[in-house]
Amino acid sequence: MKQQNLRRIISLGMLLVLVALFSALSKYFLNPNNLLEIIRDAAVPGIIGVGVTYVIITAGIDLSTGAEMALVAMVMANIYRYTLIPIPIMILVGILVGLLCGLFNGIIVAKLHLPEFIGTLATMGIFRAITYIIAIKENGTITSQPMKAYSYAILGKGFGRIYFVTIAFIVISVIGQIVLKNTRFGTNLYSVGANPKAAELSGINIARTRIIAYVIVGFCAALGAIFTTARLQSTTALLGDGFEFNPIAASVIGGVSLAGGYGDILGTFIGAIFMAALENGVLKLQMNTAYQYVIKGCIIIAVVIFDAWFNSVMEKRAQEAAAGGKEE
């Protein structure tokens, strides 16, 4: 069996085991409404995961997505509060802010050659700080800013339990997968991640490919911010704090290799649902949310170790196959 398919079956299997486990432990877990809720909760990390998957395929990482969300949301909140700019334009400005954040990341990483995780760790601090600077204050203290306009809040709803964000999640994942598999840009992402030298010899502009990937993350983070704040009908300076972990975790669980070159959006889609199911299950078991952190961290380490082992086994098999062919 092909390695990629095997890995896909493993991540699907992990999801099924998790669902079975929680279903056995809690009677509130396995019902249609809860499952729809899980998919809705998976949506925002999943949408951002599309961009993050692109970046990881190029052998990069982005730790700034949570802060990007906060900044986008806070810019929109300011527009909402202090201007009469219509909601659609406000949303466009928000998306523009996301794109700029991504562009900034891309330039730092691809042009200034900062190691990805240090560069995006730094921008995480910068975006968050700017969010605080422009945060809306009442009597000098930062408060949460309500955004209750009907035309905005509608984005947080849906057709009954089929939420708009769920639809967006599916649509963007499908588009993301098509772009990855059926455009030159998508192919370039893989080649930059797997063998940049070969990519260069084939005339691919490596820096541009990497920058575009970060810009797409910024776009996805902006969408994430819009859907999140529309549902909450408010935002705070703390929005998305620690959130950067989720899309990365979703990608890793879905089989996107942090060494670059392998993985796809379908994998991240499954990974995002896995993470949401995990969070939902932990809540249903009425465990302290703190346990989530511990469990999430352990699962990441377990998956990373598993992937390292899985890849080494596959490599050994390939080597043995090659050596087998050596017998004359």
């Binding site: 560069g119 730094a122 921008t123 700080a129 600077i133």
Partner: peptide, 17 residues
């Protein structure tokens, strides 16, 4: 202190960059 991240980030980017 919530805004220190801005200075921190710029310093990191400048120094590592």
């Amino acid at each position: 202190s919530t805004q220190h991240g801005l200075v921190r980030g710029i310093v990191i980017i400048a120094a590592v960059g």
